[in-house]
């Protein structure tokens, strides 16, 4: 359903992604783990073509793009098929929650206004913001803003939703409400790829875990395999460090 093959990306001389190959099935929830700088964000951004890969192919659904020769139309198609939830929400500041969600439906998908509004209200209600339709981002808490961000992605009905550390900019007491929403849409069978450092969440919600380091996929598998019995030394060390930090933090 999503197939990345041999994706490479360099910034100048710095090769950040090296020959990444990854398949994601429909309805799968993929969690990407890895230390800082391992290329997780870059990988997600390549999928949404916010970053242009130097090489490789991306296939989402029935649409395949050869990154070397991607044209405007290819990029547009890819972006229509995926939606991104950003670490810092990136809401349109001059638009209300409802307008944020409607924008893509009206401007890009050319839905009639009434229909777009109806769908947007539905989605905002689903993320628990039915009472905040007319609030501007500056009037919402971080958790509420991120839920608008999720609604904005969800409303577009994409084939896959990409989450880049959706809770890492939030106050701890607001993390739960956002994770609840992500869990809820995961259970609806929507395909998603999530970069996160929330280990217990990753374990509970994912059915495919990918561990990246130094721009390559070191190991991937089912959550109980990768968390329970990691094969690679680097994975073991990462998990050990991150769980001991976690214990320490409590």
């Amino acid at each position: 359903m999503i197939k990345l093959s041999r994706i490479s990306k360099s910034f100048g001389k710095n090769q950040v992604l090296k020959d990444i190959t990854l398949s994601v099935e429909k309805g799968e929830v993929v969690v990407i783990l890895g230390p800082s700088g391992s290329g997780k964000t870059t990988l997600l951004r390549c999928l949404n073509y916010l970053e242009r890969p130097n090489d490789g192919t991306i296939a989402i659904g029935d649409y395949t793009v050869d990154c070397k020769h991607a044209g405007k139309k290819d990029i547009h198609q890819l972006r229509q098929k995926s939606a991104m939830v950003f670490q810092h929400y990136n809401l349109f500041k001059h638009k209300t929650a409802l307008e944020n969600v409607m924008e893509g439906l009206v401007i890009v998908q050319k839905l009639p206004k009434e229909e777009a509004r109806k769908r947007s209200v539905e989605v905002l209600e689903k993320v628990g913001l039915g009472a905040k339709l007319d609030a501007y981002p500056s009037q919402l808490s971080g958790g509420q803003q991120q839920r608008v961000g999720i609604a904005r992605a969800l409303a577009l009905n994409p084939e896959v939703i990409l989450f880049d550390e959706p809770t890492s900019a939030l106050d701890p007491e607001l993390v739960g409400e956002v994770l609840d929403v992500i869990r809820k849409i995961a259970n609806e069978g929507i395909t998603m790829i999530v970069v996160t450092h929330e280990m217990s969440f990753a374990r509970e919600v994912s059915n495919h875990v990918v561990f990246m380091d130094g721009g390559v996929i070191v190991e991937e598998g089912k959550p109980n395999e990768l968390f329970g019995a990691p094969k690679e030394e680097r994975t073991k060390q990462f998990l050990k460090r991150i769980t001991s930090d976690w214990v320490y933090n409590i």
């Binding site: 949404n48 916010l50 547009h76 972006r79 939606a83 809401l91 349109f92 890009v108």
Partner: peptide
């Protein structure tokens, strides 16, 4: 970030 969000919802 807002421009990127605009691109990611499919705007040109």
């Amino acid at each position: 970030g807002q421009v990127e969000a605009a691109y990611s919802v499919g705007m040109n």
